[in-house]
Design a protein around this nucleic acid. Structure first.
Lengths: 233, 233
DNA sequence: GCACTCCTGTTATTTTATTGTCAACAATAA
DNA sequence: TTATTGTTGACAATAAAATAACAGGAGTGC
């Protein structure tokens, strides 16, 4: 008896955005909001807002709308943001350091406890008070501390092995900034932040919008030309 | 006569991933690959691969598959990666600096030309040889240089105004790391990297997977309880 | 060169996601 | 009170995306 119907990934990905907008409303001392008003602010349909929220329960009231503070706190609970999470950074390079220095995570309950690297010049240093350890100490650290999430900010070449080790040692969440898709057991969750991919997508869209000339050429030349493939194998 | 049928966003978002995998194959000296083989590597269906690629033209050959180098270069062209792009970083804080120091972008043709900040201690310095200017100089800089993309790594509070200015001065692409959704004209493209949202999504998924206890509680308590709303307004 | 297999491009089907509609009921105004 | 308006939650209708099916050209082995 699988209790609850599965929530679609599309909805889950929108949740943090609802949470953000509700937080903004709360700061503006707005106590209630209708799906229609929110839809105008967020540029999505009111219908979708109601349907998204109804996946988790009926948080609104007919004729009233949604109470901002109540809904904010409900989404907070849904996202699991009502407790602290311990994180470690694996890879103390540029991005790893930047994330350690980015104090906003801590405000949300995401606490970076340690950094691991192989570079002897980094090991033993502290970044914003957080110590950098040798990766060789990682297994012991994880076994003695509760690590909820590992932030992977290391080179492509090393990411796969590290992810594998982390999974073996019991880390259940990986926030992956390495430019590879990690292969981990089913019970380990990976969220990718592929910066280069994101930038390429932007570039594609820019070119798509500003390419009337090219389109004319393409029309003139007719349909795409079949590839001439070098059959040497 | 709007020449070509629009490509769905889902497909566009997958393109960089295809590009990455083909690049890997190329490095491994693999000259040909079938949609079936690629589907096994990428964990998507062969059918989807064929359909995705066919949005842009028939790159394969029956009985042969796809020529890796040819397809790689075609996707490179589709993504517009066959030329250089000039970028500026607006906001020289942690993340801004990390992105400037991340040399991999340059290898792909994304060149950071300048950094802008308001902090007097940063202005005049160079990061990896790239100068940090006062934001007051930004308008002039943009008018005298070709800036394809602005990377926004500044606080929430300042992002909206800066994005507005950039759009006014003719920047057509914004890679937005600020934790707000920017409101820009239709001809300006924005790609968001909302790190906190991404992390929250990961946390949700971890909790979803590891919450059998909670599910039992929820079953015991029956359906969600209607909100008690404070009607004071 | 012929039979047989491989594998694409394309069309059909299924699944998932989004949007539109409306009955029911709360809030508000008369 | 009573009428009118606003708004949800449920569900129906579309639209979009993913998957499957398949016809037929190209490669392969004999």
């Amino acid at each position: 008896m699988d209790s609850e119907k599965r929530i679609s990934p599309a909805v889950i990905n929108r949740l943090p955005r609802y949470y953000r907008y509700l937080g903004d409303l709360l700061e503006s001392d707005i106590t209630r909001i209708s799906s229609k008003e929110l839809s105008a602010k967020m540029n999505i349909t009111a219908s979708q807002i109601r349907q998204d929220l109804n996946n988790f329960g009926g948080f609104g009231q007919q004729g009233y709308g949604y109470n901002v503070e109540y809904l904010y706190n409900e989404i907070k609970k849904i996202l699991g943001l009502d407790r602290l999470y311990n994180m470690i950074v694996v890879g103390g390079g540029n991005i790893g350091q930047a994330l350690v220095n980015y104090t906003n995570f801590e405000k949300r309950g995401f606490v970076i406890k340690a950094v691991f690297d192989t570079n002897p010049r980094l090991i033993g240093m502290t970044i914003r008070g957080i110590e950098v350890y040798d990766v060789d100490q990682m297994e012991e650290y994880i076994k003695n501390h509760n690590v909820d999430v590992a932030i992977l900010t290391l080179p492509r070449s090393k990411a796969a092995k590290v992810a594998n080790d982390l999974a073996k040692w019991g880390v259940k969440g990986m926030w992956n900034f390495s430019h590879v898709d990690l292969q981990v057991p089913d019970d380990v969750l990976v969220e990718n932040v592929h910066l280069t991919d994101s930038l390429m997508t932007l570039i594609y869209k820019i070119n798509e919008m500003y390419s009337e000339e090219n389109e004319l050429n393409q029309l003139a030349n007719g349909l795409p030309i079949k590839p001439i493939i070098d059959l040497e194998d």
